[in-house]
Amino acid sequence: MLPPSLLKLIEELAKLPSVGQKSARRLAFYLVSQPNDQPLALARALEEAAHNLGQCECCFGLSQGPVCELCQDPRRNQEQMCVVEEGRNVFSIEASHVFQGLYHVLGGSISPLSGIYPEDLKIAELERRVLELGIKEIIIATNPDLEGEATAHYLTDLFKQSPVKVSRIARGMPSGGDLEFTDAATLARAFEGRQPFDP
């Protein structure tokens, strides 16, 4: 019989995504076998993150404070807005250094089958921000799956009558990718979206 504290730790770890019961047990045994300061440092980091991190009041991305650093940065292009599904998507785009504008996080994608409708996402807030900030271009960077595409179509229709330019990030072959290991659907999209080559 496992000690109750260890059992509780395993059960909590098993709630994490991609962690099953076996992995949770392994992680728990590892943590309790370490010197006290290491699991406590992890516990403190978790506590701190839970206390300090929240949703940015402007873009609804992840923020340490009411408004995130990206929204506060006056050097960013105030006329372009990139729309993403999740807060973590912001950091992926930021890591590429290709976009210098503002972000808007929808909080998911439209999926009637999963009971997610436009009113469940931050779409009304997007309309309001675009109007208030005088945004000139919206770049839709929702995922290239069915729900992401439906959301992109919905947003395009929404801004059809406004002077705002709406664009969608391109789809196709990943940079440095290998044709041999690319799935058929990605290759098909890459061929559909081919462009004149002018080096």
């Binding site: 009637p112 089958l113 409708y117 179509h153």
Partner: peptide
């Protein structure tokens, strides 16, 4: 796509059919 669209039709959400009809 059909399953998502059917869900909208069952709930009477005519205005939201556009994206699914496009797909």
């Amino acid at each position: 796509i059909k399953a998502n669209k059917t869900q909208l039709l069952r709930q009477g959400r005519l205005a939201e059919l556009g994206p699914w009809n496009k797909l």
